[in-house]
């Protein structure tokens, strides 16, 4: 956290996101909404499955990703924390949520333990979420088939992956305009997201319940992400409202945490 704060609150980033990223619901809605909006569309033509298109992500994650969303054809690697389970799966589901809500299709390959209830709570439409829990030894063929038709494909590679396989799948995703989200080790992704730090709120000694998690996610990758970024997010939901925050120490932290985007210089 020894970094320079460069951007404002989550509310500010939401405004920025609304201006910069066209949600795919507008794309699905057709050209009419684009015309009435009257704003230039930096992300591509409505309805075109072009490479330039960016799928929406929840506003709290827009600061992490180049283009402020999931760029079609890109590979976004989600790495868990090295030692503890600090929320990589929740981050993964949060990445899909906005795209799924906008009517796009998602598929999750090789995650038999996925908490579907959590996915639904984060806003993923379950009827457009296909699960392949056990893809078997021929999983690259399954992923390749899914890349052809599904907008976001999450892969937990069952075994050690060779660079040849990852390269082939990434190239196919680029060609088809699908966002490939591998979790676990993956060679040469466009973006790598990793949970650096995490902490749960709401649970005291013998009382309360888990309410929300504060986590710090780092993003590194090519281009603009050559300098890694770090961002602090709260899942589920946004940052805790200061009034509702319980004990004293937490209030202080919550106030301090109003500035969300942190760039490590």
């Amino acid at each position: 956290m020894a970094g320079r704060m460069v951007a404002g609150t989550a509310a500010l980033s939401a405004v920025a996101a609304a201006n910069l990223v066209r949600p795919a619901s507008a794309l699905a809605g057709g050209a009419g909404s684009a015309a009435t909006a009257g704003t230039p569309d930096p992300t591509g033509l409505p309805g075109s499955a072009g490479i330039d298109q960016v799928l929406p992500v929840p506003t709290m994650l827009t600061g992490l990703l180049p283009g402020r969303g999931l760029r079609r054809g890109s590979t976004v690697n989600v790495l868990p924390h090295r030692s503890a389970r600090l929320g990589a799966t929740s981050l993964l589901l949060a990445l899909l949520a906005e795209a799924s809500r906008a009517g796009l299709w998602c598929a999750v390959v090789g995650v038999p333990a996925l908490g579907v209830t959590a996915a639904a709570e984060l806003g993923i439409a379950l009827d457009r979420l296909a699960l392949v829990p056990n893809p078997g030894p021929d999983w690259p063929a399954v992923v390749a088939a899914l890349i052809d038709g599904v907008d976001v494909v999450v892969v937990a590679a069952p075994a050690a992956v060779t660079a040849q396989v990852t390269g082939r799948l990434a190239a196919r995703a680029r060609q088809r305009g699908c966002v490939l989200v591998p979790c676990g080790r993956w060679d040469a992704p466009d973006v790598t997201l990793q949970v650096v730090n995490g902490r749960w709120e709401g649970l005291g000694p013998g009382r309360g319940r888990l309410r929300r998690r504060e986590m710090v996610v780092s993003a590194r990758g090519r281009g603009a992400l050559n300098r890694p970024r770090e961002i602090r997010i709260w899942l589920p939901g946004g940052p805790p409202p200061a009034a509702a925050a319980p004990a004293t120490g937490i209030i202080r932290r919550a106030r301090r945490a109003e500035l969300t985007l942190v760039r490590r210089g």
Binding site: V142, A145, L146, V150
Partner: peptide
């Protein structure tokens, strides 16, 4: 339709 085709294709594989 595209997504349905892809998923049915995977069903054919697995």
């Amino acid at each position: 339709a595209r997504a349905r085709r892809a998923l049915t294709r995977v069903q054919g594989l697995l």
